[in-house]
Design a protein around this nucleic acid. Structure first.
Length: 114
DNA sequence: TCTCTGACGGTTG
DNA sequence: ACAACCGCCAGAG
C-alpha cells in the first residue's frame, strides 16, 4: 500500500459527526511531517470522507478545494456538525481515536498490505 | 532543470 | 497572543 492508500484508509476511519486535522491524518499514517501532502492527495480525490478533514484551527478548506463552494460546509452540517463562519469547534468535534479504533486502523493497514 | 506554489503544522523569538 | 521561519514534496509553468 502507498501513501495515497493510507490517507484514504484513515479518512474512511473518521467516525460520522467528527472531524480530523491534516496533521492528525499524517500522524496516523505514520508520517508526522507530511500534513501538506495529506491535503494534496485529498485534493486528488483520495476519499469521499475528505470533507471531515479541517486544518489545525478548525477552519474549512479553501474555496477552490471542493468543486462546489460551500459543499464541505453542507456535508459537515448534514453530519450533525455546527459550522460557524467556515470554522468548526474542535473542542467538540475533533476525532480522538480510541484504542479500539487505532487497533482497527492498524488492522486495515495490514490487510491492505502496508 | 529550476522556481514557485500550496486542502499544513510545529518551532521559535 | 502573534508573526516569522522552517520542514515537507509533488505538480505547474
Amino acid at each position: 500500500m502507498n501513501w495515497f492508500g493510507r490517507v484514504a484508509l484513515v479518512c474512511a476511519a473518521i467516525p460520522a459527526g467528527k472531524v480530523a486535522t491534516y496533521g492528525q491524518i499524517a500522524v496516523l499514517c505514520g508520517e508526522p511531517r507530511r500534513a501538506r501532502q495529506v491535503g494534496r492527495v485529498l485534493h486528488q480525490g483520495a476519499s469521499s470522507a475528505a470533507f471531515r478533514v479541517v486544518n489545525r484551527q478548525g477552519y474549512l478548506s479553501g474555496a477552490g478545494a471542493f468543486p462546489v463552494p460551500g459543499l464541505q460546509r453542507e456535508l459537515l452540517q448534514a453530519d450533525g456538525i455546527a459550522v460557524e463562519g467556515d470554522q468548526v469547534d474542535l473542542e467538540r468535534y475533533l476525532w480522538r481515536p480510541s484504542e479500539e479504533e487505532l487497533k482497527e486502523l492498524e488492522q486495515a493497514f495490514t490487510q491492505a498490505g502496508i
